[in-house]
Simulated assay, not measured.
Amino acid sequence: MVLRARTTTSARATIGARLATTLGAAAIALGCLIAGPSVRPAAAQNVVVMVNGTPITSYDIEQRARLQQLVSHKSADRNTILEELIDEHLKIQAGSRYKVGIDDGDVNSSYRDMASRMNLSPDQLTATLGRGGVSDRTLKSKIRADLVWQQIVRGKFQSSFQFRDKDIIAAAESKRKDDQPIAAKISGYEYVLRPILFVVPQGASASVVEAKRRQAEALRARFEDCERGLPLARQLRNVAVRSQILKNSTELPDPLRDMLDRTGVGKLTGPETTPNGIQMFAVCARHEVKLDDPALKKVRQEMFVETFEERSKQFLKELRSQAMIERK
């Protein structure tokens, strides 16, 4: 089985944004230090665990603990750190099995994006980590595992992330705080309208205005569709057929939207008096459109994260059950 060979920009952005947020405060604090502990050479590396033949050393645990300390400002539990490292090794190994190709360029790109979100250059981020006693390789190793794992889970469980519109709407409805149904916010109509104006001279008498209104009503009675009705209107004296306009139902007040719906496609709205004359609108088309509601975007993202976590835990449990994990 071959999954996508390279990570996507959105995947790097997701990983980078999450890690940049958690490391941001640490970067500010460490950036103020003139001097501090530097990264200690990996001189004595005692093997603590073997994961399918790949070692996890005491140095790996120490480095991850230091990184965790920078992120959370709390002492990291050694057993928790060790289990996270075991999981990451299993993720990387699964990536090799599924032929997920995350190269150094992908990792460095995510590292660079992360630094940018913290208003740092990659070298400055590396220096910041170094002042906290953390090698950049430690963070890049975590980035690589996250990128690999995201591709594996999304590829292996692809159908689980194809959410139906009705499920998204139902989830959004359960969290709705106002009185307007979600369905009303995400569906609407686009109207194609052609204004038709019966020009009335300024200062014309009431009888002239009324005559124009009767002329407009006569056209309205004969108007069957825009294809034949618009040329008919153009033949009338002092009648202007203006360029089409598009109106979304969400842009219209309720009374006007109701009037257009009652008029129907291919018909004319009732005549209205304007400063320039008697105006009607030909409703030439009405198309149903899907609207992009922020609430749905948020719910869709929440559903994705929840599903990803479920599938991730499920697959990690499977990998652990099949792995040779030797604790020294």
Rank of each mutant, 00 (worst) to 15 (best):
S96R: 12
D146W: 01
V239L: 02
Q235R: 03
A211F: 03
L236W: 01
G155L: 06
H73Y: 15
G188V: 13
V48C: 07
A183C: 01
E251G: 04
K212D: 05
T126N: 07
A216R: 02
V71T: 08
E306F: 07
L319F: 09
I61F: 02
N79W: 15
G36Y: 05
D254K: 15
R164C: 05
F223A: 07
A17R: 13
K142F: 11
Q162K: 12
Y111N: 03
K99D: 10
M259D: 06
G264W: 00
D123H: 11
S159F: 14
I325L: 05
D136F: 14
I34Q: 08
T22K: 10
R228Q: 12
G203E: 13
D87E: 08
E302V: 10
Q162E: 13
A206R: 14
Q215A: 10
L19M: 14
R66C: 05
C226H: 03
I28V: 13
Q314H: 09
P271L: 11
T9N: 05
G24W: 07
G229H: 03
E224H: 10
Q150G: 09
E217P: 06
V153C: 02
A206Q: 08
V209R: 13
M324L: 10
M259C: 00
V305I: 10
K313D: 13
T80N: 10
P122Y: 02
K247I: 06
E302K: 08
D165K: 14
E251F: 09
E83P: 04
R137S: 10
A42F: 01
S109K: 15
R6N: 14
T22P: 00
D254I: 10
S159K: 12
R78I: 07
F223H: 02
T9R: 15
A216G: 06
M114H: 01
F198C: 07
V200W: 14
L232Y: 00
Q151N: 11
D167Q: 13
Y59D: 15
L90V: 06
T9Q: 13
D103G: 14
M118E: 05
S110L: 12
E210T: 11
T128P: 11
R112V: 10
G133T: 02
A184Q: 13
Q124K: 15
K247W: 10
L85K: 01
T128Y: 03
T21D: 15
D167T: 05
S187D: 09
V192Q: 15
P275L: 04
G277R: 07
R117Y: 07
E306H: 12
V39W: 00
A204I: 06
L30H: 07
G266E: 03
G133Q: 04
R220E: 12
L19T: 03
E251Q: 07
V48Q: 04
G277S: 04
I143G: 01
R262V: 08
I92H: 04
R222K: 11
V209H: 10
N46H: 07
A233E: 00
R286A: 12
L19E: 13
V199F: 06
Q158L: 05
